[in-house]
Nucleic acid binder design. Structure first.
Lengths: 331, 331
DNA sequence: CTGGTGCATGTTTACGTGAACATGCTATCG
DNA sequence: CGATAGCATGTTCACGTAAACATGCACCAG
């Protein structure tokens, strides 16, 4: 900066003013400074800026894994929204979801150069992590667990799961079977609860729940079991990948979808509309979730006020495709 | 830091030494300082550290989009490898792939607090971006275009596409049709070239190529065309999503896979093994690509020496599943 | 017993920036 | 015509850290 100032024949403070777009600089001087800047290839030093201002213009994101479609879409939305406000994203993937590792990640993150943190919880494991973000550091959580000490934004899991279940009941199916996500996931738990509640309210006995781990393989394994039982005519899988696995199992044993069995997923992956048959599923608005989380966070960063503990639920949409059909009473 | 020093009755320099794990501090003093640190809730200030040391311990990643499975896996691998070395990832997603936007992203990135940059090119668009990374800033590119001024790491597209094509020829198919990726993608171009070359070397006339845009929908549209033509018995799609779209089209018109037509994809998504039928595809080792890129980058950061212009190709593996079968001569 | 050696610790300083305050010039008004 | 306001620009300083150098003490060899 000093070099630029010397080169342009001004003080370094004037260079700073030009660099930050302050108004009280004469146009001629501004031009001269800008010329010197580009001639000398001047780049403002982020570290010094951050040190002086106390702001890094970056948002930290902590996620268990990037390899689920939902997390990816969320991350993209977070990044987009942050970019609009001139913030970048600092990413700290937690490699192995062990308690020790998580707290390690947290600790590292808490020292990171970020102005705020978005945490995408995915399981109860995160709860027990010894995480103490620096005092005054804004935090927003994307998760289904309302018992968090921070504001929460999430998809309305209950509403989505109820819509899926109701759709199948309305097609005349006597009951709906559920392939759930893992026990340590709040989303999975909420979806399963809503499924059971919807059945209960319709006066239907709740069939035993099958628990998977979100993977297509786990869906496939449970699908093979379900396909044995010819009383099964409607299945709600807690995500599209497991729904895909279930469909594969039914294909293999030669039972027709949706002729013999109707299947609904959850997520609405880009591919889901091209599965065979195209999958009826619950569309999650990941973009909206990410956007809201960042907006909440940025508001808190700007005002320097702590965010009120709140819970925002983003509604889902049921997308009806070809994997569900009216129940055909078997003779 | 001064507070900690006062509280522990030492100088701030000693606190700094403890904080950085230097060896020449007496054990007793170290304990005292550590106690004071945790009592006062001391957190080292990254900005000041970066300002003093000139290192941010962060790697910048620039990507067009996060929403392709490949980019996501690559990003995850980059993050993992960086984390092992104590580096975090600063992400700058390019929202809209317009020329203006790209250069904006670049410029912003070049001012970011990063020690090095990994660029994941995805199309020719990136070429024209006016990108001048700060002098001395290490850059590694993940792309198929060797004409870049930086070291390049990528999947061996040619080898993979040749393996896919050869596999179909070895099954006895008279020729192989190709649903390619978009023209502005180097990977797509290389895959298409390799497909044509493999056919050419086998003395087979190269059928017209169908160009998609990576999406399942584009695969579906081309699939509907291909399904009309009963001479088509083998299709190589440039990615799994388009392969999925093609399969959907063939299902819809009632042509059997792999009985009537064999299909091969490229990528090996997690879901591909559960498609119906499970998809034969070319497995890309995204993790290895990301890992190598980071290793190259970190080596350059550590030694402060520019990276030699180089080109590293990571081999693929053909995963044979149920979507391909021996050619059945139609009577 | 003395000069030197090695180690723990303290003191000084600079990294690049921008807020706060200071300066000096010009325009305006009573 | 002089006082004063307003604006462009300059000067000083502190943000938190760690390298470089300085100090002081204990121990050891000659």
């Amino acid at each position: 900066m000093a070099d630029v100032a010397r080169h342009a024949g001004v003080s370094s403070q004037t260079v700073s003013r030009v660099s930050n777009g302050h108004s009280n600089v004469e146009e001629l001087t501004r031009q001269r400074v800008l010329a010197s800047m580009s001639e000398l290839g001047y780049r403002p030093n982020r570290a010094a800026r951050a040190l002086r201002s106390g702001k890094f213009r970056s948002i930290g994101v902590i996620m268990f894994t990037l390899s689920t479609a939902g997390n990816m879409s969320t991350l993209e939305a977070i990044g987009r929204e942050a970019a609009l406000a001139g913030y970048s994203i600092t990413l700290l993937p937690v490699v192995a979801p062990t308690a020790g590792d998580v707290s390690g990640a947290y600790n590292r993150l808490s020292e990171q150069a970020v102005d705020g943190i978005v945490i995408v919880y995915e399981s109860h494991l995160m709860e027990h992590a010894a995480f103490t973000p620096p005092t005054g550091m804004p935090v927003v959580v994307i998760d289904s667990n309302p018992d968090v000490a921070y504001p929460v934004v999430d998809t309305d899991q209950q509403q989505g799961a109820r819509a899926a279940t109701r759709h199948l009941l309305e097609l005349g199916h006597p009951t709906v079977h559920h392939v759930a996500g893992p026990a340590n996931s709040f989303s999975a738990t909420h979806r399963a609860e809503a499924w059971a509640a919807e059945l209960g309210e319709a006066g239907i006995r709740v069939p035993p729940m099958l628990m998977g781990d979100w993977s297509t393989d786990s869906g496939y394994r449970h699908g093979l079991d379900l396909a044995q039982n010819h009383d099964v005519t409607a299945i709600f899988a807690a995500n599209d990948q497991m729904a895909l696995g279930v469909m594969r199992a039914f294909h293999e044993v030669g039972r027709d979808i949706p002729g013999d069995v109707s299947i609904v997923g959850f997520d609405d992956l880009e591919e889901s509309s091209s599965f065979w048959p195209p999958l009826t599923t619950v569309h999650q608005n990941f973009a909206q979730v990410g956007r809201l989380a960042v907006q909440l966070l940025l508001a808190s960063i700007d005002t320097a006020e702590p965010i009120a503990r709140s819970s925002t639920l983003v509604p889902t949409t049921l997308v009806v495709r070809a994997s569900t059909a009216l129940h055909r009473a078997t003779p």
